[in-house]
Design a protein around this nucleic acid. Structure first.
Lengths: 195, 195
DNA sequence: CCTCCAGTGTTGTCACTGTCAACATAAGGG
DNA sequence: CCCTTATGTTGACAGTGACAACACTGGAGG
């Protein structure tokens, strides 16, 4: 709070926070590193000590998002014992994460980023998918487990996107529990073969 | 080809074309109206006679995309008689459209656009969803048809996104027919209750 | 056929941005 | 205690979106 003269303390984290704030206000297209610096009260070139490029900042946000997602998914699954329950807990957590962190979710799946392959092990994104495949494999006995995981991922990913893009009528999203209800309804409809 | 002195002829259409080209090359984040003008061989302010703003250009691309999607979906469904077949034809067309026009697809679902409600009737996007609801309603007898449509849309939308974001291994997308196969496999897996 | 005007393209300009290079300051290990 | 190194600052440059003022031109109405 008090003015930390010259050195900020944790500018990198502050940039990540303030960037999400700015994106929520003005959209990712209008994100400006200079504006972020201004909000923090630091010079316009300071961000470059922490991110080589604006894209690098966005990549860091995506990585952060995937790590949070994995954490939340693990926490949600911890309460379940049956494989099927665990899988759906993941699904619900996935959609809830998107609703709670729409900016992160959108950045996480902005493919134009990350053309260069990271050398430092599998990314958090890979971990999130691997975790999903694992759960799906535990449910579908004989099927191609990767295909099943892909189908499952598609459904929850599509739901997330459509919700945060405002394609779902507001009255279906009234309460917080509504998101979970919506997700479980979609699961039920598909599994019942009604569509 | 020959230099059309002063007046271009159809600069608006040329801008839409060249914008998609530029986006495919450099990503939507690096789209520049001045660069588009340069590619066409027109002055840097000419685009503003046709689009009030860069966002307006992107909105026009989205509208164009939804119109194409509706056309292709209608064409695909025309060959089918059974409601269930028609619905799946829509779904396959949806995914195929995304694969064939990834830039359009991404722009179409970049929610940060279109905050102002259009007055001139329902947008092409609304039409696309209405068409889907119609097909879904014809299939699911007693269920909430909108919920069923939403579930269906979620699956095909998620598949599209994951594919164009490069989350599907390349070997599953070898041939053109592979996309259709992938989509139908996902439908089957869900309907069989295997996941 | 002429005129004139609305639509379209141009030139010039402004504030702002991403990025880099050169410099300043702090913080902590030898 | 000093000096290396990480971090922050200042200054600069080219490129951008957007606007205003101006130029060209094709076609409608006389």
């Amino acid at each position: 709070m008090t003015k930390r003269s010259y050195h900020h303390g944790d500018l990198r984290a502050a940039l990540l926070d303030v960037a999400i704030e700015a994106i929520a206000e003005q959209g990712v297209a209008h994100l400006s590193l200079r504006d972020c610096a201004r909000r923090i009260g630091v010079s316009h070139a300071a961000p470059y000590r922490h991110f080589a490029t604006k894209e690098a900042l966005l990549l860091a946000l995506a990585e952060q998002g995937f790590r949070w997602l994995v954490d939340e998914a693990r926490a949600a699954m911890a309460a379940c014992e049956q494989p099927a329950e665990r899988l759906d807990a993941y699904g619900v957590a996935y959609v809830r994460f998107a609703v709670d962190h729409p900016e992160h979710h959108r950045i996480m799946f902005t493919s134009e980023l990350s053309p260069e392959v990271d050398v430092d092990g599998p990314s958090a994104a890979d971990e999130a998918f691997a975790l999903l495949v694992e759960q799906a494999a535990a449910v579908s006995e004989s099927e191609d487990p990767e295909a099943a995981a892909f189908a499952y991922w598609s459904l929850v990913h599509g739901m997330s996107m459509l919700i945060i893009d405002g394609r779902v009528p507001a009255e279906r999203l009234a309460s917080r529990g509504a998101v979970e209800e919506l997700a479980r309804t979609a699961f039920r409809i598909w599994r019942s073969g009604a569509v």
